[in-house]
Design a protein around this nucleic acid. Structure first.
Lengths: 105, 105
DNA sequence: TCAGTCTGCAATCATCTAGTTGCAGATAAG
DNA sequence: CTTATCTGCAACTAGATGATTGCAGACTGA
């Protein structure tokens, strides 16, 4: 995995409204119209957010009759979490090495 | 931890230039001026990015003489990673439950 | 003291983006 | 068949943001 594929994920998660959408989807699949009934934004705005989330691999569309429901995907989040943990650990390791070096003087 | 404090972190990570800055800082603390020598953007642009990163708790300023160096912090990333992993696992669990329910019919 | 350099603030610009309204096409229900 | 509803596309607006240039203040070193 590279940051190239992850930047869109972070960009998608860097918006309050999209978190509301994800939280709503977390309680059950729903269509853009259904979400518009629960959130204080229009259906079209939600549709755009869903497109962003889908582009980041965080949700998946599922056709149910004439409507398109969206399902939240945990796998993308888990992968991202693993990546972040690795990077964070590296940085902490470097910082610890510097501290140790400073105390050794 | 709540999404309220995390959204700025994701927003900060959702930008390629800021990842370049983080990558550069990962190899050693540096000032905005020093970073401007390595990256294809001006010092002022970098200063703004550093302010965003600092606001998200991803870097920390360290005065060294007359210059202000920035240090990358892994702890914020690790915390964020744990949070993401928890949420991702919940979503996956729900999805698995739904699949199981569907197969049980 | 004086020159060089580093920081910080302000104004400006262009682009991106979150949000809206409006309309047209598709599909399920009566 | 007709009606209601759901989707998708397009145009538009307002605000956020990434980036620039310019200038003034502060500190180091010769």
């Amino acid at each position: 995995m590279t940051t190239g594929t992850l930047v869109p994920v972070f960009a998608a998660l860097g918006d309050e409204t999209r978190w509301s959408i994800l939280a709503a989807l977390g309680e059950g699949d729903a269509s853009a119209s259904a979400l518009a009934g629960r959130l204080p934004v229009t259906r079209q705005a939600i549709a755009k957010h869903l497109a962003v989330l889908q582009g980041a691999g965080l949700v998946e569309p599922v056709r149910v009759g004439r409507e398109v429901q969206y399902r939240v995907l945990g796998s993308q989040l888990s992968e991202t979490a693993r990546w972040l943990d690795t990077i964070g650990a590296e940085w902490d390791r470097r910082l610890a090495a510097i501290k140790e070096l400073a105390e050794g003087l």
